[in-house]
Simulated assay, not measured.
Amino acid sequence: MVSLPPNLMQGIFLVQSGRKVEALAYLRHAARTEPVGPEGWLWLAAATDDLEEYRYCVQMALQLDRAHAVARQMRDDLARRGIPVDLPPDNGAGIGVAERSLPYRGTRRRRILLAVMVLLLLAAVLGVIYVVTMTDVLSDAVDEVDQALSGTETTIRVGSAPSFRFRVDLPESWMAADEDSGGWQSTRTALEDDFPAPGEGGGVLEQVDESFSAVTRDPVYGAVQPNVRLVNTDRVALAAEGMVATLTLQEILPLPEVDAGEDPTVCNRLGVLQRRSQDDAATDGSEVIASGLIERDLPQDCVFFVHRRFPIDSFDQNVFLLDPDRAPEAMRAIAIVVPVGAERYALWWLTYADEAAEAYQDTLDGILETLEYVPDA
């Protein structure tokens, strides 16, 4: 009898016992670290309630075994629901662990990107009247054609097939660091002239931006790859603080289940995250400044945050120092969690220099009050 890897074995046992929520953690970890094979991917599909994750698992199983009868039946069921499972041409090669973090690839993705960008451009044109007469909102970061984010309310779209749209109020000096945007490119070039890289090599601002339209969400682990950022472009602040202040989207994950007997509202499910954060003792040398669950529009609209102070060299996310020789000694990092529909949440990080904490308080308050997921109409 073939022995299964330990996490896969435990996950299968929990699914068979009807404990799918507990099984997910084991099966997702197994998919990332163990040779699960097509059967393992199908067990993960059986455990998840996330349709996107289910489709991805079926795709992975078929990439490993195109003739797998159960996987083919699951693919056909998805097709009848209007959810295609496309596979790359069969060249006789399997898929390796290193490829699992890149679920959307090839010409299909490019076609989808092109179609999405065309639709977004049309939507932006139709929305001009509303933008001019009602708000300063830009249609989204992908469609900012050669212009900076000039209003206080900013809407961005990241990724494609599926894409995620968020809206937030920010000071006018903040911009989406989208390398597809002409406005951002010209601003970045001007900033690089003011803040040249010390020594040889490119400046730190070259590391800040990404192509928002090329971003994907790993359907199994939730990571937004690569991270997307909104950044403060104010020259005075950059010179004084020595680092680039950023608001970064890092992950989109399933909401946890509530305790037995508790009403499973979005806000209550975010409350589970709040309790978990309080139970976790800080082991990274940080100081907790504040934390809490803010109820904005019950029962579905809440935001959870943890505000911490870190030594500049101990924060484990990207920190963009303009000149390492003039780096601040400490920084603020605020984890901000907002709902994404009824089943997921997005993890954002707001980071800035510790000495500028008072200057960023209004920015933080505005983000906590307004950062939200915007479903497509």
Rank of each mutant, 00 (worst) to 15 (best):
L4R: 15
N7H: 05
L8C: 15
M9V: 03
Q16L: 09
S17G: 11
K20N: 15
A23W: 02
L24P: 01
L27G: 00
H29D: 10
T33E: 12
P38L: 00
D49C: 06
Y54C: 01
Q63K: 10
R66K: 14
H68T: 01
D86R: 09
P88A: 05
P89N: 04
R110A: 11
R111N: 08
I112G: 13
L114W: 06
V118H: 11
L121H: 14
M134T: 07
T135Y: 04
D143S: 13
E144C: 09
V145K: 12
Q147R: 13
A148N: 11
T154V: 14
T155K: 14
R157G: 08
P171M: 10
S173F: 04
M175S: 15
D180A: 06
D180P: 02
G183A: 11
Q185V: 05
S186W: 04
T187R: 06
E192W: 10
P196A: 13
A197L: 03
A197S: 13
A197Q: 06
A197H: 14
A197I: 02
G201N: 15
G202S: 12
G202W: 07
G203D: 07
Q207H: 08
Q207M: 15
E210K: 12
V215R: 11
P219M: 14
G222K: 01
A223V: 09
A223D: 08
P226H: 15
V228Q: 10
L230E: 06
V231G: 01
T233S: 14
D234I: 00
R235N: 09
A240W: 05
E241L: 08
E241K: 07
V244Y: 12
V244A: 13
L247G: 11
L249E: 06
Q250Y: 13
E262R: 05
V272H: 11
Q278P: 00
A282H: 05
A282I: 08
T283W: 04
V288G: 10
I289Q: 12
L293K: 02
E295S: 03
D297N: 15
L298N: 13
L298H: 03
R308M: 03
P311M: 05
I312P: 03
F315M: 03
L321N: 04
P328S: 03
A330S: 14
V338T: 11
G341W: 02
A342R: 15
L347H: 03
W349P: 01
Y352T: 01
A353I: 10
A353K: 03
D354M: 09
D354E: 13
A356P: 01
A356I: 00
A357S: 06
A359G: 01
E369N: 10
Y373A: 05
V374N: 03
D376C: 09
